[in-house]
Nucleic acid binder design. Structure first.
Lengths: 245, 245
DNA sequence: ACAAAGTTGTGTATTTTTTACACAAAAAAG
DNA sequence: CTTTTTTGTGTAAAAAATACACAACTTTGT
């Protein structure tokens, strides 16, 4: 809250022309890459495409694109997502930037990684365009560029976030059974959880709405279906204070 | 692990010249900005400098710089830190990229925000260069560019991280008392904590080394001094699995 | 020497949360 | 009608979090 006062010596070398300043900055090519996760057959999958670089022939890469002039990073990631999946109402969050100078064989390219979560069955994607397909995360290898690193980072990000935020529901149908929910957590976290304690935990949160419907077409006793109560969650986000490491 | 087999139709339009591809990418100016936090007089502070843009005369900005050709983002942030504080052995972590097209008055500039934590007394910085100084985080306002947003984001990041990782020790002297540690947590989290439970918590973690020294020059009964046992922490990082939101 | 101020160091009882664990009933498939 | 698979449910024990009070120590000022 300092006011300029006459005793302060005026700052020298103040820059008047911001535009000229920025024009002198070095520039780099910038892209976004999306780790788009889906859940199918009790496995976490990620959407990949065959690389179109000869150098990486046969290797998969993530979906990505350059960032356009005057486009926000979030917009660019969203555009990629929409172009490839046709979906627009999808969870998307920035993870981090990757900047190794040799990460792209064509020269310096910085990329910002995004994590996206969607329900595989909600989209009819042009799956066969250019070998676009879902690949199990656990068996991925030999990706183009540093995309394996990016997937690893995004997967770690997801493992952590899913424990603290209700992200997982983005991977499931709107109506789901507790078994499906537990399978999701077990698959993503790579652990097995006690069924009764898992159910008790969600019951105690009181964020699942029992919609009085049952599973259909399952080869065993059907379970109840639930929806996640996003509204209640939004109005009662828990602010937890604790120290634990 | 697919092998090319003769039945697969050969992919068309494979790009041979990656360099040419990248040369055609649009380019943007890229910077890093560091939210460098310190702890002094039981307050969280952040290192700021008077903006050198006339448009922002009198406003503070974070320390930042352009990212050089072939420089990693981490390197660039580290370079900024070292140039301004003379320190090199400092906690630094990427937070996220900011890309609003109008965030810089000189045109489109993307910046990647970093959070750094250091002990204010460990450096003799050229504090008076260009009005470089420590500013209390809680009373910051009217910053240049979107730097207030960046500080807010980094502060939120810090609040969350400090509860799950032993970052706070970077802000304290190597030897510290439990009171100092508690003051730190209270200041950063903005809460008051029960003193006995706080001490019990750290005692149960068994990560503080009692070095059998006492505080000096405090105007009251001196407390014991501790060091944080980074080695033990590294070898026994807790892998917590739980669901809580 | 003494009093005042400020802080240290410590333990227990209560509540809450987490964990471990088993069985009867439902539906589908054959 | 038998087998298979899964659902739905409760309790006891252990662990963690919380609330809370007092005597002793050191410095400072008188």
């Amino acid at each position: 809250m300092k006011k300029n006062n006459p005793q302060e010596k005026p700052q020298e070398h103040l820059i008047k022309d911001a535009r000229k300043l920025v024009e002198a900055y070095p520039k780099v090519p910038l892209t976004v890459d999306c780790a788009i996760f889906g859940f199918e057959e009790s496995q976490l999958k990620v959407l990949v495409i065959k690389s179109d670089l000869e150098l990486y022939e046969g290797h998969y890469s993530l979906l990505g694109d350059i960032v356009k002039d005057n486009e926000e990073l979030d917009e660019a990631a969203y555009r990629v997502l929409k172009e490839r999946t046709g979906m627009d109402d999808v969870f998307l969050d920035q993870v981090r930037a990757f900047s190794h100078p040799a990460r792209h064989p064509g020269g310096r390219v910085i990329t910002v990684a995004y994590c996206s979560l969607l329900n595989i069955n909600h989209h009819q994607l042009k799956i066969h365009d250019n070998d676009l397909n879902w690949h199990s995360v656990s068996t991925l290898k030999d990706m183009a560029f540093d995309h394996k690193d990016i997937v690893d980072e995004c997967y770690g990000w997801l493992q952590k976030r899913i424990q603290e935020h209700p992200l997982g529901f983005n991977l499931l149908p709107e109506k789901f059974s507790l078994r499906e929910l537990q399978n999701l957590y077990e698959a993503i976290l790579g652990v097995s959880l006690d069924r009764r304690n898992f159910r008790k935990k969600f019951a105690s949160m009181d964020l699942l709405i029992d919609i009085n419907e049952m599973e259909q077409d399952v080869p065993h006793r059907p379970g109840k279906l639930y929806k996640f109560n996003f509204e209640k969650y939004e109005t009662s986000k828990r602010k937890w204070i604790g120290i634990d490491f």
